[in-house]
Simulated assay, not measured.
Amino acid sequence: MNNQSLPTAPRRTLSLLLGGALVLTIGLGSGFLAGRQSVAAVDGLSEIEHVIRDQALAVPDNQTINDGALRGAVASLDDQYASWYSADEFARFSSQLDGKFVGIGVFLERTEVGMLITGVIPNSPAETAGLKAGEYIVAVNGTRLRSTMPFEEMVGLITGEEGTEVSLLITTTAGEEKPYTITRAKFDLPLTQTQMLDNGVASIRLHEFSRGAADSLKTAITEAKSQGAKGIVLDLRSNPGGLLEESIGVMELFVAPHSRVVTIESRHDHQDMDTGDAEPPFGDLPFVVLVNEYSASASEIVSAALQDHGRAKIVGHQTFGKGVVQSVVNLQGGTGMKLTTARYLTPNGENINEIGVTPDVAISASPERVLQEAANYLIETKPEAFAN
């Protein structure tokens, strides 16, 4: 399975990122131009820099002015997923793609009322504190989050060094404001979690499509089958996405060789992304896919592709609806950036951006009840696989 990237992206493009949300563990920046000399090279910026140095009450250093220009350049893209990273920030961001984090452990989306928590990482400080998906972070260390704040600035207020504390004001799902003080910590994101249910069904939760996701899922399914599982619920609830190559790798576990996974359309190119040559190890395994309103991007690619190919039924709630793709690019001096470079279409040619994937079976209940209903549906629709 080869890493994929858009040919129109700069030569240092790392990978296509299909993330509907970011794990709140890193401080993020934004920007586009590289190099201090670029500030003076842009019309008007050198004049602004001169006015700042001559008249501003508080004069920032050269690096701060340069970084501010970079942040402003990316902000001009009107791209909510675009960010520029300093060298330290980019190193932390890259470690996120490897599933290694320092932070509080929540997945976030920027909204008009604050930062929406779309998922909480197991065994993280956020889970220990009791934060839940669907809640909003509305203030950090006494600073109210404003809709005009860049995403990176909001995240930067919350991130910090291991062992330090951050005070959050949370709006609960009941609409009440509640304060929390959380100590940042280092932790690994477990890619999969397995729960053996009744009647030969295993629930396998895939938390994120970061590096190694497909291999981790393959191992989890193999182990579940060795414990007597005859079918699985692939739980993608609150999975915010990840890497394109991992979504293709997951599809290769279940569908025939050379099956369409997704079509990527950029300004200059059109790519049909298919599975490889190998036969799927679980081509006959009965399973359903469980999703919710926070299942995004790579989760939606996999769900839609399995649905279009008739390989698995989708159960749960309408998904998030992120149908655009970001490229992650290495820049000079160890810095980097992420920006939207393409849109994707399902195998049937559908654009699900701001729409989402419609489940075959809609279920609205408690998380535990939804999981059990998904397992029951699998048994009811595949009785021959679960017969004693």
Rank of each mutant, 00 (worst) to 15 (best):
P10K: 12
D215Q: 11
V102A: 08
A224P: 02
F107K: 05
S46Y: 09
E350W: 05
L57I: 12
K218A: 09
L131E: 06
G316D: 02
E368S: 12
H258K: 12
G99Q: 08
M337V: 02
T159D: 12
V361K: 05
A214W: 00
E293F: 00
N3A: 10
L234E: 01
R211C: 06
T346H: 00
Q326D: 14
E165Y: 02
R260I: 11
G212T: 09
T25A: 15
S167R: 02
T128I: 15
A133E: 12
A375T: 01
N353P: 11
R36T: 15
G316W: 08
G356Q: 07
N348R: 13
Y377R: 08
R11T: 10
N292H: 09
N388E: 02
F101G: 00
S247F: 05
P367W: 05
Q96I: 07
V255P: 05
A41Q: 15
L236S: 00
P7N: 08
T118R: 14
N388I: 00
G276Y: 00
G200P: 06
P179M: 14
L14E: 07
A312P: 04
A9N: 09
G336D: 06
A174V: 12
S295V: 09
S124A: 15
Q4I: 13
K100N: 12
S295Q: 11
